[in-house]
């Protein structure tokens, strides 16, 4: 493992020449986005780094992305923790951050959080985040995947800062979390009230009118339908996919290990 870290360090030294002004205020020994497998072009990596730096500074939490060829025989979660510590990632005294590490040989990933990152990236939130990123990873659309990852991290951090980190909230949790009547809720409620009032009014009015012209003569049939030709022809097929609403998960919060990290890992 030491060998790989050393190679990463050499890469870091090289990259640091390019990103010197940005890294000057940090004790990180690697840029936030570090692709050792050449998945990104230089320009793409630079742009992603810039975005990660910007969001990290805005929310006081490092958004890290590391791509390695393999995990040198270690499991992906241990390897991620070591990389995070060894290269001094993390913002502030509590080393807050979130890191996505991709191991290309086994196509393993690990999304880990530390410090304040454990508050912003709950177990449920990490799972949701990777659900959005994995489709791009599966298509080897690396730049889109990493860009999506950084954007989602920023969104999760913003929500956490607003006091509502992305998590699996049951109805009771939501009530305990405080009742806030948003404009959207008011508009929806008014529409629901109007529809219900119109429906009830329509039903009650229909009870007052019982005389209507008949359109059928079913009471006067003299036998069953003599069915002739029948032909059922297939025309076309439509498929719609709707993402399930949040809140269906069982537990919520973040499971933090004794190491101070929380993880969500799998294959892509």
């Amino acid at each position: 493992m030491k060998k790989r870290w050393t190679s990463l360090l050499l890469l870091a030294a090289l990259l640091s020449l390019l990103a010197l002004p940005v890294l000057a205020d940090s004790d990180r020994e690697l840029p936030l986005v570090c692709d050792t497998c050449g998945l990104l072009t230089e320009e793409q990596e630079e742009a992603l780094n810039e975005k990660a730096e910007q969001y990290s500074a805005a929310y006081d939490c490092d958004i890290v992305l590391i791509v390695v060829p393999d995990t040198e025989g270690y499991d992906v979660e241990t390897y991620t923790e070591e990389v995070y510590r060894y290269y001094s990632f993390g913002w502030g005294a509590d080393r807050s951050g979130v890191i996505l590490l991709l191991s290309m040989e086994e196509r393993d990933y690990d999304l880990a959080a530390f410090g304040y990152g454990n508050t912003a990236f709950t177990d449920y939130g990490k799972e949701w985040l990777m659900d959005d990123v994995k489709p791009y990873l599966k298509k080897n659309d690396w730049n889109a995947a990493f860009s999506k990852y950084i954007d989602l991290c920023a969104e999760y951090l913003r929500k956490a800062r607003d006091g509502r980190p992305v998590d699996s909230y049951g109805a009771l949790d939501r009530l305990r979390g405080g009742f806030h009547l948003s404009l959207r809720a008011v508009v929806y409620a008014l529409i629901a009230g109007l529809i219900a009032a119109l429906v009830v009014n329509g039903i009650l009015k229909s009870k007052m009118k019982s005389a209507v012209l008949a359109s059928r003569a079913d009471d006067y049939l003299a036998g069953d339908l003599q069915l002739g030709e029948t032909d059922d022809r297939f025309l076309k097929k439509d498929v719609t996919r709707v993402r399930r609403d949040r809140g269906s998960g069982s537990g919520h919060g973040t499971s933090v290990r004794s190491s101070g990290f929380s993880h969500h890992s799998g294959k892509f």
Partner: peptide
């Protein structure tokens, strides 16, 4: 959703 055209005579 699969769509069909169904013809009946009788």
């Amino acid at each position: 959703t699969s769509h069909y055209e169904c013809y009946r005579s009788g």
